[in-house]
């Protein structure tokens, strides 16, 4: 119970940390990392729930759910990075400054392309 709470509680803290970072930070890469940290937090909770005390085999179902969740998170991250790359490429091709509209409520969720990704050239 204590071990499960410490581990799962850490997961909840990671979730909250990721949520805060996602809402507050502007650059896309930070938002994406924040989302992955949120995901890791939720996976922690699942793993903690699988724990059934020392010496007892853990519940395999949450373990399998987490494996599925990881692959889904990797896929989403890959697609987001590719979209971001495309935006960057456009920006460098047209050498035009970015003016993504950030109007609307919760503008913290808008994205501003950054040029801090590894260049391939």
């Amino acid at each position: 119970m204590t071990a499960a709470f410490l581990y799962g509680g850490a997961g909840i803290l990671l979730f909250a940390l990721g949520l805060w970072s996602l809402l507050v930070h502007e650059p896309l890469l930070r938002k994406l990392i924040a989302l992955n940290i949120m995901g890791a937090g939720v996976f922690h909770v699942f793993i903690a729930v699988a724990h059934r005390g020392d010496g007892t085999p853990p519940d395999p179902v949450p373990h399998a759910l987490v494996l599925t969740g990881i692959v889904v998170a990797v896929s989403a991250t890959a697609l987001a990075l590719a979209l971001h790359n495309r935006l960057e490429q456009d920006a460098s091709d047209s050498a035009q400054s970015t003016s993504t509209s950030t109007a609307g409520l919760l503008s913290g969720l808008s994205i501003s392309p950054q040029s801090d990704i590894i260049r391939h050239e």
Partner: peptide
């Protein structure tokens, strides 16, 4: 289109994470 859909993807992921945490609590 790319910028709008990148935002859409991130928003969708945030929604899924919130949903999944709810599912984790229910399973608990």
């Amino acid at each position: 289109a790319v910028a709008a859909n990148l935002r859409y993807l991130l928003v969708g992921l945030l929604g899924s994470m919130s949903y999944l945490l709810g599912v984790a609590l229910i399973y608990t």
